[in-house]
Design a protein around this nucleic acid. Sequence first.
DNA 1: TGACTCCGTGGAATCGGTTCCATCAGGCGC
DNA 2: GCGCCTGATGGAACCGATTCCACGGAGTCA
Lengths: 367, 367
Amino acid sequence: MRGSRRANITDVAKASGVGVGTVSRVINGAANVREATRLRVLQVVEQLGYQPSHLAAALARGTTRTVGIVVPRLVAPSVTQRLAGALTVLNAEGYETVVCNVDSPAQRDHFLSSLPGRHRTDGVIVVSLPLRADHVAAFRHAAVPLVTVDVSVRGVPHTIIDNLAGGRLVAEHLLALGHTRIGFVGDRVQRKATTALGFTASDRRLVGLLTGLAAAGVAADPSLIRTGPHGPAHAESFATELLALPDPPTAIFAASDSQALGVLAAADRLGVAVPGQLSVIGFDDIQIAGLVGLSTVRQPLEDSGAEGARRLCALIRGQPVKPLRQLLALQVVPRKTTNRAGQGRADSPAESATAPGPAFRATGRIA
Amino acid sequence: MRGSRRANITDVAKASGVGVGTVSRVINGAANVREATRLRVLQVVEQLGYQPSHLAAALARGTTRTVGIVVPRLVAPSVTQRLAGALTVLNAEGYETVVCNVDSPAQRDHFLSSLPGRHRTDGVIVVSLPLRADHVAAFRHAAVPLVTVDVSVRGVPHTIIDNLAGGRLVAEHLLALGHTRIGFVGDRVQRKATTALGFTASDRRLVGLLTGLAAAGVAADPSLIRTGPHGPAHAESFATELLALPDPPTAIFAASDSQALGVLAAADRLGVAVPGQLSVIGFDDIQIAGLVGLSTVRQPLEDSGAEGARRLCALIRGQPVKPLRQLLALQVVPRKTTNRAGQGRADSPAESATAPGPAFRATGRIA
DNA sequence: TGACTCCGTGGAATCGGTTCCATCAGGCGC
DNA sequence: GCGCCTGATGGAACCGATTCCACGGAGTCA
């Protein structure tokens, strides 16, 4: 195949004896093309193996048919599930997706300040990352549609859950099982803006827990609360501390499932029976939770990504996005790691008559 | 800010009293610009908030500074880790990344046939997906650089592991612990091309296992081999079958860690002690493996993505990629789920004197 | 038959950069 | 003082589409 330069629209126009405008109309399925012409052009397209340049089309059109998604710590299973949900919707809607994985605040700032201005994407989804006012302003000024998932930003459509309600659900679940001495293992918000991405979900879940306990007249013991850097390893050492106390908790709430796995590892290492001597409950319901039988609070991870993507697409089309804040539903999923306080392991604790119903529902709705 | 149309290069040129060529040189850090001129232009750039259009630059330049990566089942932890490794390298090299998640053969074909021709990416990484000859031909014909990760393709640079050797490592590990009755739980290759993505790693790992056993004069019992659709749920039911046999295996090799988790769940449900009555070993060493103490064969997941990305970048720069086949190292990671055959759980089986050294190394090298 | 519509169509202008070539001002050697 | 070389610079051409406007011809109505 000599002269094997990529065929362009002019080549097709010449070879089929029509103008470039007509070829463009055929390619884009516009009306107002005679059927005979259409077929002739399509035949030439086939024959030349012509594929329109995405770049040139985007430049001329002024719209890229590409969206950006900014996520923190991609390897975290919860993030992956959100991303997968978003990708599915975006692909179905005909968008390509540029993924920006953020591991440090510097990277975050780089992506958030370069994405709006570069004529690069038709819109952006930000997952789990708090936005500063200047970030938001940059998007607004460049008129680039923006939505967030799992983080609430004033004036920007966001898809989130009610972490406070989630914490309360945990309190209700554990109280119903007779636990009153309840430990908490979670993240400490890093104040140093240069090193931290600034997640706050853990805090709110803790507050929800405490609120729920207080509502039942149960006083929380501050010495049972441990927070620090994220990651199962830290969770494991915190749990080890808690279990070594003279009067250890009978239940531990971990701010996320991966931290709950750390707690389980600690219990295992210390020979503490779960759920016999210790109940453990996590948050998120990542895929492994089901596998290891971890009780948890389920949030719709893939759905959150999918909803964010849907809302972004609407925004790009110029449709209004009705409630700025979209709350997704939460529910307790009791599995094998929570059981009545002070009881040995039942045959099938999750289904035992004493356990609460299969699921609580948080207030909240799926739009 | 009236007339708030995005500033373009002409605006900058006018405002700073130079030609567009000079502005372009300043932006791209070309030499041959007087320092005074450079500063003046930069000042105007700052003042106008000018950011060059990625699209226009790519079109004019003929190169997009964007690469595509095609992955199957993004939510699988192993895939995520590879993706994360690739993204890190690509970001550092100044490339943006379009992620294509594939859940069905139709999607795979769509991405693989549209990516080469559309003037969209400077190169493509395909992860874990077997390529047909026509796919490869399309890339070659369009002169779009292509590398693969975790799948071997003739004539295309690929970064893989030796699954056969991995299977042998497992055989050696289990034999050293005194196991001879060894079960296998893995995937069955789907023959229907329209529904299957065609992974074959499981098969090769099995063959490696059998080879290793045979080398030690141990005959494998075919009735202990169970293969079927992927996923922990199937693995769990296969393991349940194996454990219900009159003469059950003393060890089970699962073709992947996620399947091993299914095996563990089955043992737990049946009250079979691990590793007391049953040893379990997986493959991959995904992050959760460390958390739950699963013995496994580690393959460098993030590295594989990173290496693929590095090789793609070299290819794009026109540098030759030296060994077409890049083999990454494997090593057994004994944790808490494997122990001597017929022994109760030791205090610390992984470190026990009877266990093999901390790690075996497969033949293989990291380039 | 003439005026007016409407459909199908050709092609120039445009998007916003990069790149190459021509130009020009100095600096240097003789 | 003159010719030559070099480094800085301006700007036209180009990348490959979309889009808008103008135009020709067929059909309609009076």
